[in-house]
Structures are given as C-alpha cells and as structure tokens.
Design a protein around this nucleic acid. Sequence first.
DNA 1: GGGGGTAGTGTTAGCGCTAACAATTGCGTC
DNA 2: GACGCAATTGTTAGCGCTAACACTACCCCC
Lengths: 344, 344
Amino acid sequence: MSSNDGRRPPVMADVAQLAGVSHQTVSRVLNDHPNVRGETRDRVLAAIDNLGYRRNLAARALVTRHSRTLGVVSFDTTLYGPASTLYGIEQAARAAGYFVSIVSLKTLTAELVVEAVEFLSDQGVDGIVVVAPQRSAASALAGLRSHVPVVAVEGGQAGEAPAVSVDQADGARQVVEHLLGLGHETVWHVAGPTDWLEAEGRLDGWRKALTAAGRPVPEPLVGDWSPRSGYDAGRRLAEVPGLTAVFVANDQMALGLLRAFTVLGIRVPEQISVAGFDDIPEAEFFNPPLTTVRQDFGEVGRRSIEILLRRVESGADLGYEQSVVPARLVIRDSSGPAARAKQS
Amino acid sequence: MSSNDGRRPPVMADVAQLAGVSHQTVSRVLNDHPNVRGETRDRVLAAIDNLGYRRNLAARALVTRHSRTLGVVSFDTTLYGPASTLYGIEQAARAAGYFVSIVSLKTLTAELVVEAVEFLSDQGVDGIVVVAPQRSAASALAGLRSHVPVVAVEGGQAGEAPAVSVDQADGARQVVEHLLGLGHETVWHVAGPTDWLEAEGRLDGWRKALTAAGRPVPEPLVGDWSPRSGYDAGRRLAEVPGLTAVFVANDQMALGLLRAFTVLGIRVPEQISVAGFDDIPEAEFFNPPLTTVRQDFGEVGRRSIEILLRRVESGADLGYEQSVVPARLVIRDSSGPAARAKQS
DNA sequence: GGGGGTAGTGTTAGCGCTAACAATTGCGTC
DNA sequence: GACGCAATTGTTAGCGCTAACACTACCCCC
C-alpha cells in the first residue's frame, strides 16, 4: 500500500502521505516556518519519527545553493599547531551545524593551495578556512578569486582575505622581557624557516624587544622547526662565548637544543636559559621543563569560523578584517637568573 | 545572446549551447563515456574551458546517490596518533578522488560515536572510517546499522565492522625481547588506559612475551597516555627494588617517566632501561633518545581507505575482514645492557 | 540490397527538495 | 452580509545533473 515498500529510505513524500499533508508542509515543518498549525506540525513530526525520515541534503543543497559544508585547507595536520587549529575549527563549525571537509597539504606552494581551494569549491563548500602560515601560501590567497568567502589563519597580510592569527610578536616580546628581567645581557634566537609568517613574527618581536631595551641583537640562527635543526643550532650556540639565554622559535627545536646542551654537558638553566614557543603538551616534561609561550589554538579556530560564517550568512564581501589572539608566556624551569659573566 | 548573461556560474546547458551539442553529450564527455566522437569531445572540452565550467556536484550526487565524500570519525585529532592516521586517510582518500569530511570527538562514548556517524550519514557520505581505539567506541560500531559501509581503525573486534590496526602486541613483544636480550631479568610495564584497545594489545604482548621467556610478570602500572601520568609512574617505579627495565605504553608517558628519573637522579640507561611506543618525532631527541616502536600510520590510513572504497564501489557488504599493519622496533640510547644486580 | 548491428547523438523523465504562487479557510469590519 | 485580510495548506515549477531510451547514420554481411 505504502509508496515505500522497497528498501529505499523514505522521502518527503512518504512522510507527507503518512501525515496526510502535502510534501511542502513537511518541508515547512523541517525548516521551522512560522505558519504551520501546531497540530499539523505534531502530526508531521510523528510521521518523520515513525518512518525514520532524514532529509536528503544533496537535494536541499541543489535548490538552496548552500551545502552547509565548510572547507579547510591546512598544512601538515600531523604537527601540533595545525592539528590543534584544525580541531578548534572543526569544533566551532560543527557547533554551528556545519560539516567540515579537509584538505591537508604536505607542502604549501601557491599552486597547491589554489588547487586545494578549487577542489573544495567543486564540492560546493559555503566557505573556506586556509591555514596558510607560509608567505607563499598567503600570497596565493591574494590572487585567488574564489566564489565563496575565504578566511586565512596565520596568513594575514593586509589587503587579502580576512585573517585570524596569534600575536606572535607579542609572545616573543614577553619571552625576551622575561629573560632580560632575569638579568641576561641579551637573548639569542633560533628562528623558524624564513618563509613562515609565524617565524617572522617571532623574529620581529624578539628583535624589537631587544632593541627597545637597548641590548645588542645577535645574529639569529635559522632552523626548520624540527628537533634535529634545534639540535644543530644547540651545538653551534654552545660555542658562543658569553651566551646565557636562547629563545627558540618552537618547542620541538627547543627540545633538540636541550638535547645538544645535555650531550655537551651544559646545564640549563644554570649556565644557559632556554625558552620555546607553542607550549606543546610535552614541554612541561622536558629536561628541564620548558619556559614557553602558549597559543590558544581553540580560540583561533573559533574566531576564524565566526568570521567565516558571518560572511557566508550575509552573502556579502565584508572586506578585510583582522583578529589577533593574544599569546601567553608560561614560565617553567628552563629559564633562570643569568649566570655570572663567564669568559670562554 | 548567451543564456548566461548573469553572474551565475555556467551550467551544462551553457556548455552544450556553446559547443553546439546537447547537454547529455557534455555529460558524456565529463563522465568519459566511450561513444563520443573525438572531434565532438574536443569541441565540448574547449567550451568547458572557455566558460570555466565546473559541474555541480550536488546535482550529480542527487541523481547518482553518491557524493564522493567519505566521513571520518576520530578521537581528539590533536594527539599524534589520531592526527597521523587522519592524515594518512585524507591523503589516500583524496588520491582516490574523494572528499573527506571529519568529526573529531573529545570523548569517545558509544553515544557520541553513533551521533557522529549519523551526522555524517545525513551529509550523504559514501562511507565512513571510524578511528575507535576505545572499547566503548568499538562496541558502538557493533550495534550500528548504517546504510553506508563503515571501517574501523584500531577498533577491530571480530564480528563487527572490518578493521585495520597496527600489530600492537607484536610491537610490545619486540620491545620485551629486545630488553631481555640485553640481559634484563624482566621488564616492567606502564600501560595505557584500560578501555583502550591499543593499551590492551600492548599489555597482552608484553605479558605473553615475558611468559614465553619464562620470566616473572610484574604488576603493570596504569597511566592515561599523558606525560604527567608517566611522571607519576616513574616516581613509583623508582622505589621498586631490582627494577632494571621499563616498557612504557606510549612515548609521551615515557617522556614523563624519564623526567621523573632525572629528577630522582636515576640514570637511563645505565641504571634503568626505558622503551616507549609510537615513535613521535620528538622521541629521537629525548634525554636520552628513546627506544620505541614505530607505527606506520600512513599505511593504516591507506589500507582503511582501500577496504572502504572496495565496499563503497562494489555496493556489497563484504563481511568482516581484518588488516594488520606491522610495527617496528626502533632502538636508541634509552635501552642498554642490564645493570649488575643491585640490591636496594 | 535489405537485415542487423553499432557508433554517435538527442530527447525525455526524473533524483528530492524548496520557492513562488494559488487556493482555502476563518475572522473581524462596516 | 459582503469585503478584506491573515493564517494555513496545496500546487506547480524548477535546481543541474544522469539514466534510459529513441533516433539517425553508416557499415558489414550474405
């Protein structure tokens, strides 16, 4: 008797028939239209429940031109930072009733970013978050004419897509001031890769803070975020006479540097103070526990979704906008009072 | 003149008109149908290129009943293991031309897993990968009657969804045999949370290997994967007389344990050998570098997608199936020859 | 030279939903 | 008591695509 004898899941018409209304009324109930009599609504809801009906979102997307899906393009989601940001984004998006479709890139070239954005556009996403911490990727966004709103995370550059980022420079400033406050004459720096905006922000903050305090600015070393590059930097810094404090651009490199110092018999913080950046969960249990800067990735995710959805739902291009999330210094054992001047 | 004067993106009919064919022929070209004349195909492709046409996947999904999207339900993607698995899954899925929609759960209760699967089903995904390393989540899959194929990762339990997992027990066996081979009388164990299948696998492997070698099996301690719980375990183990070797169920807890030993002045590996599990990128730079077990998460991701797609594309329920990825011992400095018997 | 294939192409009919409009009812108003 | 208006519900027409079938050439073969 029913039009749904087969195994095929029920459609709106099945619900309508069971409730004795038109399919349009079912649609109205589902979309919370005001003009539906309470009793009718109840009847429809009962029928929906009865049949286990779930509406077909592909059909809905076809007619509304909205998929309720957001895309995320991210660099290597295996790393703590991107993974945490992605997590924050996903939580915020789902809380707002959106699906999240991701593309994770091994390398962040402009070409691949554009390709990823197009891939997601094809899928019909309503908006895209690009976690683009490298200059190359960030500039790719500038040349991108996407039909859907795009928000950049850690890729902010005036005049491009709206951006959310952590205040890297201020985090670096806090580290430097903390170390200078402990009596260190100056602070050396192991920077991240030069084309990373985060690395640049930390480098700038470090340099400005030293300059502001009237201290000498040593030549920074450059690593690639990996523990190994931190280890290498550590071996080199160990030979610098008079060095008493190092600010390493991320915790993983700081780990490598601590390892190098241990191998060389240099005691931290007695001889040299060390600070990192990120506050990965492991940092508290390094040898010694690492003074570092905590980034609130969850907040970054939430803000990026907030900005993106405002644009998706208004349908307008709201222009450039920047949101900066503060960073917070976390002091642990790896930083201590300056050693008495030592001549090497 | 054109039917696409407006701002609206071109549709198949626009392409058809420009190429002087029917929209169906355009569809044939797009779907690689064999019966299209070469010259016609070229004309259509030129028109597509000319208009910048991209087909509407929502419309396609509506009629084909396939979205070319796969869903992933995962536990806290901030952790190295889940993040790496997710990455592997995403790479494999995208290589196969599928989109990946994710749901990341803070806690892994049966209820939340079911909810996540339904959320993804609503979206019309063609298949779902559930990273379900906890018993509660794995059993939720058993009671799940999803309309789409589901594959479990690290959640294998005979009779349920097909599963892909790393050979945890064999990894643990390798660790134990390595340590016994170094002359240790027995090996203590700091296990992961009891409801985690991975923790259980490692515990079993450890116990069996000791039993097989005719060694005493000490009472295992239980942590929660966090460095802090490893630290706590370290403090307790430091009081055990005669202890010379510890196998910790993951690298993060091993880090905490190493920290505790350092604080207590216990030297590794001279006094006590330590081994972990996971081989996180940091492990090589612990103090000392950690002997551990590497899991090939990329392979896990690839295999899960392979199994899932086989089911999605055949449309049949192919029954239970299990795929086990081998684990590999990585020997570093934290394990060494047994100390001469010491009486505490 | 007509039957029967087989490319190659067009025509038609939906997929399941929402938007727009039409129809019906009930009520207050003068 | 006819009129206007609001509330409620139904009807119709697509959204852009693919599947199924129809049609036209053209070729091969006996």
